[in-house]
Design a binder for these strands. Sequence first.
DNA 1: TATTGGATCGCC
DNA 2: GCGATCCAATAG
Length: 195
Amino acid sequence: MVIQKEKVKKDFFLRDTVTVARELLGSLITYKSHNGLVGGYIVETEAYLGYNDPACHSSRGMTKRNTTMFQGAGLVYVYLIYGIYYCLNFTTADVKEPEAVLIRALEPTIGIEIMSKNRPGKKFKELCNGPGKLTQAMDIDSKVNGLSVGKELCVYKDKKVPYKDILSQPRIGISQAVDLPLRFTIKDCTYVSKK
DNA sequence: TATTGGATCGCC
DNA sequence: GCGATCCAATAG
C-alpha cells in the first residue's frame, strides 16, 4: 500500500511537547506489522513534560526503562505497563528535555482485518480506544522501542484539527500532577477512550 | 534480594 | 466498581 501523504520528520517532534501533542491529533499513524500494514488517525494524546512533571517517567532521571526519552526527539518510546500492556509514545523536545507524547487512541483505518484478528471479538470502535488496546491491535511491543519515527512506524500529516475542536483535560491513570490538563482529545469523537 | 505500586483492561 | 497480573523502581 502506498500512502500519498506528507511524512512527518524529526523537526515536527523537536518542538514544544504540548504543541506536538495537539498537532498529532488528526495525523495518520502506520506500522508495518508482521502480518501487514496497520494504522489509523490519532484522536487522543497526552503530554509528559520531563523534569517538571512528576507523572513523567523521566522526571527522576534516566533508568533502564526510560533511556529512549533521553536520546532526542522523534523516537518511538514503548514500555510495558502493569506487566501486561504496552504503551506507545513519541519523544519530543531535545536531549536535555526528556519529554514525550503518549498515543492513547486511534480511529482505525488501515489493516482493520489484521487488527480485528489481534483483538478477537472486539467491535470496530473498541479496536484502538485505549493505549494498551491500540498497541495490541497494531502488534506493537518493546521491539520498536528506540527506533526513529519514519521507518517501521510512520506518522503522516493529515486532517488539521481546529483549535476549538480540541478538548484539553486532566490525564488518565496517574497519581501525580493530576490537575494539569495535558490530555488532548478530538471533541465528540467516538473513538477516544473513556468517552 | 524483597517490596511496592503502576501513563490498564475487562468483567462484575 | 474492582481484581488480574507482573515488571520496574526503590529500598535495604
